[in-house]
Design a protein around this nucleic acid. Structure first.
Lengths: 130, 130
DNA sequence: TTGTGTGCAAAGCATTTGCACGGCT
DNA sequence: AGCCGTGCAAATGCTTTGCACACAA
């Protein structure tokens, strides 16, 4: 039977409170700065379980995997600064868009890539994406 | 200056001819079965370059990264059998859907996850997704 | 001819795993 | 009390890198 341990609650809480979309490494640092005795194996095991249980989101960006507590929204990845911006697209609309197919859609994984307003406005590297 | 080597052409050709959406490992096997003396470092370097140059697609699935020669289409990942199915969604439509934002969209990364018709019809594991 | 790309092997990381112990239930 | 989850450290596996050589330009 499945147990609800203090560590799992604490890890989920840290991710929930994090404003950013941390990578595993960043999450380990966040967790360990508050709870130094949680081992990284536990963090990996917990995160993997949470993803499988659909309790958190796994965002596959060009610069690696990020995690997000909130669900039912999508993300934009800035190719210049790497910032991840939350998008409030209508979830049902997108699912409807795809429901003409004879496929049972459980999950929509959508990541937009481009240049965020900050980077668009900056004068640096205006000659193109690298 | 950038060189156009035989190895790069051969690797791209193998990926182009592959009907599936191979992982790096599968691609290495495919390439080496035809060209045994291409080293895996070369395959990694080539693939990474091709992705950066937007010549091939990098599909981040729950079971790992897959690659695809064809562009301008999207994918469905079957949570049961892991098969990847090409979707012919209208690219412009999806981009328009998102263009209301003040973001410069360069690329749309869309992966649908669910159960494919094959797996839906099969009697096995009909009690749910694992 | 020149310098980038390749092949090999080793290094470097990220992630997983084995095992003994701790603590939910 | 029983047993799943944890912590530690080691193992594993994937990806990158250093270096000498090959070959495209």
């Amino acid at each position: 039977m499945e147990r609800n341990t203090k560590q799992q609650q604490q890890i989920l809480e840290i991710l929930k409170e994090s404003k950013s979309h941390p990578t595993i490494k960043e999450l380990c640092d966040l967790v360990n700065s508050e709870y130094p005795n949680i081992g990284q194996a536990t963090i990996y095991r917990t995160i993997n379980k949470l993803v499988l249980d659909n309790k958190i989101l796994r965002i596959a960006c060009p610069n690696g995997i990020h995690y997000d507590y909130h669900k039912e929204h999508y993300h934009f990845y800035c190719l210049r600064c790497g910032k991840i911006i939350d998008l409030n697209l209508n979830h049902d609309f997108i699912v409807n868009l795809l429901s003409t197919k004879d496929l049972n859609i459980f999950k929509v994984d959508l990541l937009l890539e481009g240049v965020c307003p900050n980077c668009s406005n900056s004068e640096v590297e205006k000659d193109g994406i690298k």
